[in-house]
């Protein structure tokens, strides 16, 4: 385990906050917002997949719940954007609890858990695609209205700062996990569930809490996505792309670490842009590179970039290797 200090986290967030002030071009600003959204989704994935060792292949279910709540509440019920954001996050936790309740009751883990989360996300996608309430296949649009109450800004640096604020919360949640009894339980059940149970850990309750927090964070990413792009449909909100990007970023960055998901999101998306520039018009090159990086990182750096950096001598504690 690597345990960054709070001050380190503060420096990282501050550094990221300074970047937009330096006067980024619109496209870089856009990219950075997207990075933060993916980082947040990945932080959510990391709570469950990284700390608790339950790899989900269907975090789109949470992302979509947040995104749809955000847009549906605002457009159909005239709810204020900020309140919609809170409800969206809560809905993510609820969906997490629902999926968790069903699957953990049946004791699903490993491949089975991955498969069932995938199936839930797909069911959500098909339902959202065919229900009028969610705009059906046409998707739903949010109106472009700038101003603080609408959570849309003429100067998009403000939006970036808000997204960054959420990423900071994600960092704090992970930091807290590493310093709390609850976090220790999670890791214990990842390493050996039976042993944890024997020691008196209420495994079911711990997993339920983990999936609810995980769902809430990823739903927040969904809310921000909807608010930034102002349009969602079933394939965007519940599509497998986000399940995969969240998982990628967390694993490549370092699953079960505080900074991993953020680092992973920045590196992967940055690399993706770079590949696109180098590869010109060849389709699929960026994703191809993602896939290669995933396989390589599982093979050579199963603990992610965070650990790789540590073991390359930035500070090589013996602990890092056993984590």
């Amino acid at each position: 385990m690597t345990r960054p200090r709070l001050s380190t986290l503060a420096i990282i967030v501050a550094a990221l906050a300074v970047v937009p002030l330096a006067g980024l071009s619109g496209s870089l600003l856009n990219l950075m917002i997207f990075m933060m959204i993916i980082a947040l989704a990945a932080q959510g994935w990391n709570i469950l997949g990284g700390y608790a060792g339950l790899s989900s292949f269907g975090h789109a279910a949470f992302f979509g719940a947040g995104a749809y709540a955000m847009v549906v509440l605002q457009t159909r019920f005239g709810v204020n954007a900020w309140i919609a954001l809170v409800i969206g996050i809560a809905l993510g936790a609820l969906v997490g609890a629902f999926i968790g309740f069903l699957s953990f009751r049946s004791g699903l883990k490993g491949s089975y858990f991955a498969l069932i989360t995938l199936a839930f996300a797909e069911v959500a996608r098909i339902l959202a695609n065919s229900t009028n309430f969610t705009g059906g296949a046409a998707g739903i649009l949010l109106k472009l209205q700038t101003g603080l109450p609408y959570l849309q800004f003429a100067d998009r640096r403000y939006f970036l700062l808000i997204a960054l604020g959420f990423v900071a919360i994600g960092l704090l949640v992970s930091w807290w996990l590493e310093h709390s009894r609850f976090g220790a339980y999670l890791v214990a059940l990842r390493e050996n569930e039976q042993a944890a149970q024997a020691l008196g850990v209420d495994v079911f309750a711990v997993k339920m809490k983990a999936i609810a927090i995980s769902g809430a964070l990823t739903a927040a990413a969904g809310c921000l996505y909807a608010q930034n792009y102002l349009f969602i449909d079933a394939n965007v909100a519940f599509g497998s792309w986000i399940s995969i990007e969240a998982l990628f970023a967390a694993i490549v960055g370092g699953s079960g670490t505080v900074i991993g998901p953020l680092l992973g999101a920045i590196v992967l998306l940055g690399l993706g842009e770079l590949t696109k520039m180098v590869s010109g018009g060849i389709p699929g090159m960026d994703l191809l590179v993602f896939g290669v990086i995933l396989v390589l990182s599982v093979a050579y750096s199963p603990n992610g970039l965070v650990m790789l950096m540590k073991s390359l001598g930035l500070r090589a504690p013996a602990k890092a290797r056993e984590a």
């Binding site: 071009s25 496209s27 856009n30 990219l31 997207f34 792009y229 349009f231 965007v236």
Partner: peptide, 16 residues
């Protein structure tokens, strides 16, 4: 790139 975010991103690039 046939998807919505990339479309927004490409529009930003055209703007730049």
């Amino acid at each position: 790139r046939s998807n919505a975010e990339a479309g927004a991103q490409a529009t930003e690039e055209l703007q730049s």
